[in-house]
Design a protein around this nucleic acid. Structure first.
Lengths: 198, 198
DNA sequence: TGCACAATTCATCACATGATGAAAAACGCG
DNA sequence: CGCGTTTTTCATCATGTGATGAATTGTGCA
C-alpha cells in the first residue's frame, strides 16, 4: 500500500489558503495577543505548514499588521456622531461604538489591536494613536472646550466596556442588548462630553 | 593578577536577596505580564543568577503567585465605602480605589494581577473573582437592587481608568490629582450604584 | 578551629519559537 | 506533451525559555 504520510507539494483545488491563514491569525491574535500567538499555532489552525505563513506574509510583525487591517475608517464611522452637534452626541457615539464592536468582522482586528496596545511594547500605539486618531477629531469637530480631556474621559468608559464585554466576557455585560447599553452609558458619555468639569 | 570574573558562592554581607528578587518580579510582571516576563529577566534585574530565582521561589507560577500577594484585604478596604450607606457611596468608592492604586506597594501587584487577567488563560480569575470578591460584597452590603448588574457597571468605569491611567499611561489622566478624579468620576459611579436603570 | 548548612553560580537539558532555503507537487500555458 | 510558475512541505539553524543538579563559597555554631 502507498504511504499514508501527507503528500507534499501543492494542494489540489483552489483553496484560498492566504485568506484562511489571515482568518486564523485574526482569531488567534484577538484571543491571545501578539506574543501569545505563535506562527506555528496560526499555521496549525489554518491546517497548513508553518513555512507557508512566512511565504505569504513574511515576518510575524507583517502578519500581525495584516491581521490588524480593518475596513472601518474612523473618520467615516464617526461622521454621524459629529453631524448632530453636541446634543445627543453621547448616545450617537455609544451607538457607533457598539455597532463596530458587535460586528465580528471588525471586532477581531480591533481586539487584536487592543491586545497589542495592552501588551508591552505597543503602548505608544494607543497613547498617541487611538485617542488622537479616532476620538480626537470628534472632540475637535464638536467644538468642545478642553476636548482632549473630555475625550480621555470618554475613552476611559469605553475602554472599560471593551475589556469587560469583549475581552474578559463578564456577565451580565455580554448579554445586555445594545439598546440597554445605550440607555445605560449614553448619559455618562454625554456628561463627559458636555457636562461641567471640576 | 587575580581573576576579574565574578566569584561564585555565597555573597558577603547579609543582602536580602529574596526580597530583591520579589521586588524585581513585581515590577516586571506589572510591566510586561506573565508571559512577557522571563525568569532570566527577573534574575538579571535583581543582579542574580537565574537558578537562584528557582531556588527561592520554585517554578514560574509560584513566583507569579508570590508577586501577586498584596497586603490589602478588600473586605477591610471597602469598609468605609459600605458604612456610610448609599448616599455618597460613589465618592467614597472612588477615594478608596485611588488610594489603593496610587500606592506603589499595592499598585504593582494589582497591575500584575490585572495583566494576568487580561492575558489569555487567566480570564476566569476576574470573571468570577474580582467582581465577586471585591465589588460583590459592596453591592450586597449597600443593599442595592440588581447588585450584580450595578457593580458590573461600576467595574466597567474603574477598569477603564486602570487601563488608561495605570497601564497605558494616557495623559491627561496620569497627571490628574486625586481630588479632580473623584470630582469627575464620583457622579458616574453614584449613578451606576443608585441611579435609575433602563 | 572545624564542620554543617545556606546562598550562590555554572553547566546543561529538553523544548518551543521565528526564520530560511531547498525540494517536491500541482497547475496552466504553449 | 513539456516547461515554467506558484503553492506547499521538509529539513534545519540559531536563539531564548523553564528547569534541574552539581559544584563552589561564605556564615555561624559547636
Amino acid at each position: 500500500m502507498t504511504s499514508a504520510a501527507p503528500r507534499r507539494g501543492r494542494r489540489p483545488g483552489a483553496p484560498d489558503t492566504r485568506a484562511a491563514i489571515l482568518a486564523s491569525a485574526r482569531e488567534l491574535f484577538a484571543a491571545s495577543g501578539y506574543a501569545g500567538t505563535s506562527m506555528r499555532a496560526v499555521a496549525a489552525a489554518a491546517g497548513v505548514d508553518a513555512a507557508l505563513v512566512h511565504h505569504y506574509f513574511g515576518a510575524k510583525d507583517d502578519l500581525f499588521l495584516a491581521a490588524l487591517q480593518v475596513r472601518v475608517d474612523p473618520r467615516v464611522a464617526m461622521l454621524p456622531v459629529i453631524e448632530g452637534g453636541v446634543d445627543g452626541a453621547g448616545e450617537r457615539l455609544m451607538r457607533v461604538f457598539l455597532s463596530v464592536w458587535d460586528d465580528e468582522d471588525s471586532r477581531l482586528p480591533l481586539l487584536a489591536l487592543f491586545r497589542g496596545i495592552v501588551e508591552p511594547n505597543g503602548q505608544q500605539l494607543v497613547r498617541d494613536g487611538f485617542v488622537r486618531m479616532v476620538l480626537g477629531p470628534v472632540g475637535a469637530a464638536l467644538d468642545l472646550d478642553q476636548a482632549e480631556r473630555r475625550m480621555t474621559l470618554v475613552a476611559s468608559q469605553l475602554v472599560g466596556i471593551v475589556v469587560l464585554r469583549y475581552l474578559v466576557l463578564v456577565e451580565p455585560l455580554v448579554s445586555m442588548p445594545a439598546d440597554e447599553l445605550v440607555a445605560t452609558y449614553a448619559p455618562t458619555l454625554q456628561r463627559y462630553l458636555a457636562g461641567p468639569l471640576p
